[in-house]
Design a protein around this nucleic acid. Structure first.
Lengths: 189, 189
DNA sequence: ATTAGTGTACCGGCTGGTCGGCTAATTAAG
DNA sequence: CTTAATTAGCCGACCAGCCGGTACACTAAT
């Protein structure tokens, strides 16, 4: 068993375990997110799993941390692709949040599923949300920024739970509306 | 058999048990929502609890149903207080969802906490969301309705998880903006 | 030989669920 | 009206399985 020696550096099996956990939670629900299930999904024994995450809580914390990092990275990436202009941060946020279909963003999905289980897991999320706020609304009048931000968040939630009522064309209309408003375009009909 | 008491029933301890469940989940998290905990919180023995909810899943289903009913009722109530005008439904929705006290809506909070545990619990929520949509956007141009709806949903979510970045005055500004937009007011700065 | 990483085996407690019995109220019988 | 039978509602002891966690042996690479 040449356990993937590939390159020195980060323990890739740890990441594999985290992704296995994400798979379990998205496929079977948070209630079935058990250590054995994660170990099974990661094709590792429980001992191997417990080596990297000495506690279930540590696993969950790592999950939350990873989801936050992923969100942050995809925002930065979207921002890098945009020209420097007022509303750039907000526009990048809209783009990052509405770009991939939510079933392609299992990180956030797992986050939303796992966090309610233990109130302590909420704190990093709260902190991140409050911390990133200024960068988002920078250069955009308050009301407009708030509206776009909240609507993006709402769309994200609705699609995450599969309760979005919009057809594909409606959705793209909403999406472009958000981008337009973020970039400081006109008003709405 | 619990025999749904339709109309003519005592304030039934069944409801008390459901509210105990809500209390447990909001205070201790979804992971600690155990039958024993609910029974303890409801000051009832486990047998007594199991009499009304033969299964834990049935308890959760009842919780979800109750949360949905509560949401629907508070929307209808808000609507009744509003004059007949275009955007009335949407306006009532904004009002009901942004009512001053997010911590006083433990129903939705419990819903959001419990649902990720079992994917099957999502279906009623999905159905309700899609069903109520037409009544909400009635009489309001699509883009405006979508924007207000999504932003309201986003604000609801942020406040539910305690990640709202807005001060009290900012929040009330956002709130009145949403109402204005829903009622067909002007555009945004 | 040491150490990082994994496997195997096990345990104690908790959890969902069952079961028979208790109590008070309602109904049926006399 | 009295009494017996039924029933709804609740109790609490119990159980079988699962879950998180521990202990330790093993392997490969340093």
């Amino acid at each position: 068993m040449p356990a993937k020696p590939a390159t020195r550096g980060r323990p890739s099996s740890r990441d594999a375990m985290l992704e296995a956990a994400i798979a379990v939670v998205t496929e079977q629900g948070a209630a079935r997110l058990t250590l054995d299930a994660v170990a099974r999904a990661a094709k590792v024994s429980k001992g191997g799993l417990m080596y990297h995450f000495p506690t279930k809580e540590s696993l969950l914390q790592a999950l939350v941390t990873r989801a936050i990092e992923h969100t942050q990275q995809s925002w930065e990436q979207a921002q890098r692709r945009l020209p420097e202009q007022p509303g750039r941060g907000l526009c990048a946020y809209v783009q990052a949040s509405t770009a991939e279909r939510p079933d392609l963003d299992p990180f956030s999905s797992a986050l939303l599923a796992v966090v309610p289980g233990d109130p302590k897991l909420l704190e990093p999320v709260r902190a991140y949300f409050k911390e990133r706020m200024p960068a988002l609304s920078e250069g955009v009048p308050f009301e407009r920024a708030a509206l776009v931000y909240l609507a993006t968040e709402g769309l994200w939630l609705l699609e995450l739970v599969g309760a979005s009522p919009y057809t594909r064309s409606q959705r793209s209309k909403v999406q472009s509306l958000l981008k337009r408003l973020a970039a400081e375009g006109g008003s709405l009909p």
